[in-house]
Amino acid sequence: MSDAVIALQGITKRYASGRVRVEALRGIDLVIRSGEMVAIMGPSGSGKTTLMEILGCLLQPSEGQYRFKGRPIHQIPPDGLAALRGTELGFVFQSFNLLPRLTALENVELPLSYRGVTARERHARAHEALLRVGLAERLRHLPSELSGGERQRVAIARALINRPSLILADEPTGNLDSRTGEEIMALLHTLHGEGNTVVLVTHDTRIGDQVERRVAIRDGRIETDTRSP
């Protein structure tokens, strides 16, 4: 258990919207170890995005315990969670979520600017991260001047900038054509190959099937948890 990045125990999430109560998650137990690549799969409405938000510390579970590298999340104050998101986690979203007014380089630098890193070091590290995702030549472009695949590469570079313990990717290929999607998947596989822990959320079985460990979710419960040999 010592190398578990994520340990979930009985995680339940209820939403109350008006008089309707929705149970998005109903008792999830899940352990993800360092260096694993995991695909969380399920149809829309299965609760997989809620699960990812809880993993990303953007949402507090209603019940159950979440330990991140052994630390119980519910004991960490809000500022501590912000710091954890900034240093231990890297997010990749379906709709990229780049800031439209910032250049590619500035978008990648963003997590560092909240950590008090000097401008010079920010530039150097962002530059390096963009090199890793193969975008060394489009540093000064705004997101609107980049293709979908390029935008997602910028987003991945942003997720990598703090050398996080966990990369969380929510439908990273969802807004891309299949060829570009494959390129992005190849990039995520490469990052995994370099030792990064990657958690991928997808409803696309073709994407999921490429991944060594697959967790299928339905109606807020884990249905299957399978590993490829």
Partner: peptide, 16 residues
């Protein structure tokens, strides 16, 4: 709001 969400996700504190 999207921008704010992104900033929070990459480590901004509420007070930032």
């Amino acid at each position: 709001r999207q921008e704010i969400g992104v900033r929070l996700a990459v480590g901004a504190r509420r007070r930032d």
